[in-house]
Nucleic acid binder design. Structure first.
Lengths: 133, 133
DNA sequence: ATGCATTGAATGCAAGTGCATTTAATTCCG
DNA sequence: CGGAATTAAATGCACTTGCATTCAATGCAT
């Protein structure tokens, strides 16, 4: 590994990544849009849902979410605000650091995620399966 | 090939793509920004430069460019307008279809591309080498 | 040739994003 | 304890983007 690839290989790899990324993201956005979600929105819901046990559900800080979905802190702040407006997540105070904000799924958010997840997975299967080795 | 991967593999692959894409694009933007270019701008310059012979240089239609860099037609129209304002490309009429627009590099555009290309390649090498197999 | 559908590009508009800044809470050092 | 430096999140702002629409040129059918 780490093979000092020649330039044209690097360029081709990068173009492949750009193409795959663009096609998949576009398709995801198209499919999810009918559920009122963008790809980033789902990504956040997915992160929030994956660590959640039925009763409580995991709570993440804004910064934690930001780094997980590769968005800036400000973008995530607004994204969470939008999700909250749609009643998909709720923001709560951190008891141990009152600057921080705990973001967690609402029941509606969990339901929406469960509803949309198979669709998202099917898009990934369609776009990725066989395309990356 | 085309192996019907299990769900968690698909999800992990997609997350890897998102991470690699975000990190690389962000780094490219950071480095190129000091030359007054965004990553998309360079991509367009790169497409225009690659087919160019010294005397003429290749001319592409807006739509052709759009599909090559995975942007919408409207985004590309504006992007070309910005590049033209900076005198990096020029728009000309298509003789055979007067709706179409021929976009080609100016001397300044060619110079800018040549100036920035090694930097872009080095970023690709840094981010991609050893990361994708 | 005339009119209608189609195609290429430009533009109005709304939405999402990042950077820089602001506001609030915490930490560190004197 | 008190004040400066730091950290978390929210906000102002400018920019890029995509969708829908518009405008111009072409192609097709009558």
């Amino acid at each position: 590994m780490a093979a000092n690839k020649p330039e044209h290989v690097l360029v081709d790899e990068w173009r492949d990544i750009l193409a795959l990324h663009a096609r998949t993201l576009c398709e995801l956005d198209r499919e999810l849009h009918r559920y009122g979600l963008g790809a980033s929105d789902f990504e956040v819901l997915d992160v929030l849902a994956e660590g959640a046990s039925e009763d409580g559900g995991a709570a993440y800080r804004v910064q934690e979410l930001a780094s997980r979905v590769h968005l800036s802190q400000s973008a995530l702040s607004r994204l969470v605000a939008r999700l909250e407006k749609d009643d998909l997540v709720c923001r709560g105070m951190c008891s141990e650091d009152r600057r921080g904000v705990r973001v967690e799924l609402t029941a509606k958010g969990r339901a929406r995620h469960a509803e949309v997840k198979p669709l998202q997975r099917s898009v990934l299967a369609r776009m990725l399966d066989g395309a990356t080795g």
